[in-house]
Simulated assay, not measured.
Amino acid sequence: MENNREALLQTALNLFSEKGYSSVGVQEIADKVGVGKPTLYHYFKNKEGLLRALFDSYLLVDFPQLEKATERKDDIPYTLQAVAQEFCSLAMKNPEFYCLLIHLFYSGRKDEAYLATKPYLDRLENMILQVFESAAWQLGNMNGRQNQFAHSFLGMVFEYAFSNLQEGKSLQEKDINQLIHQFMHGIYS
């Protein structure tokens, strides 16, 4: 029985990342796994519950590693490097999920999938915001723009990861170093 749950999760991830959440129905997922819709509903209640279970299985499990990367708040370049490196490392391990996450982050704010995953996305955003909040004393020109810096940083990392993963390229440490260097140059100027 547990195999059905895992098969439903994996199939949903494949289909959501390939076609988009709103283009996939529960019947299609159940058919691909070879179970009936009642089996899917037994495990996940509905399609939103299935999406949340994906986020629990991937992002919720990855949060401790991402949070650990933010620990050195006294050294903003080091911390941003560590966060970007960890995010890209996790994305390389689960490219389908991380492409889906990034896609949903930029989806419509009233979209069903966005609303279902908003608590996870907010937690990720707040984690990055806290890095900039903690560094505000170090960077005088950031004064009051911590939110803007956090969004810019997250957008830069998301774009780098998404474009490379979509093209099947690996995420190289030297490229991440250059991204952070470029971002820091913008902060300090």
Rank of each mutant, 00 (worst) to 15 (best):
Q85K: 09
V157I: 06
A136Y: 08
N164P: 04
G49H: 05
F63R: 02
P38S: 06
F97A: 00
G144E: 10
I128K: 05
E2H: 06
A135H: 03
E2R: 13
H151D: 10
R5E: 11
L13Q: 03
E28P: 14
G25S: 07
G20D: 02
L115A: 12
V61Y: 10
F63E: 03
K32C: 09
L121T: 09
S170H: 09
F132N: 05
V131P: 05
F105Q: 15
E96M: 07
I187V: 12
D175A: 06
P119N: 10
D31Q: 08
R109P: 11
D122G: 04
L139G: 15
E125R: 03
F63N: 06
I29Y: 15
I29T: 12
K32W: 07
E18H: 06
L179E: 08
N14Y: 03
V35S: 05
D56F: 00
N177D: 12
F132K: 00
R109W: 05
L154R: 01
L139R: 13
I102P: 00
L15C: 03
N147Q: 14
E6P: 08
M1N: 03
L154D: 01
L60R: 09
S107G: 15
N14A: 01
L60K: 06
Q65F: 07
K93Y: 01
S163T: 00
T79I: 08
R5P: 03
M142Y: 10
S189W: 15
N177A: 12
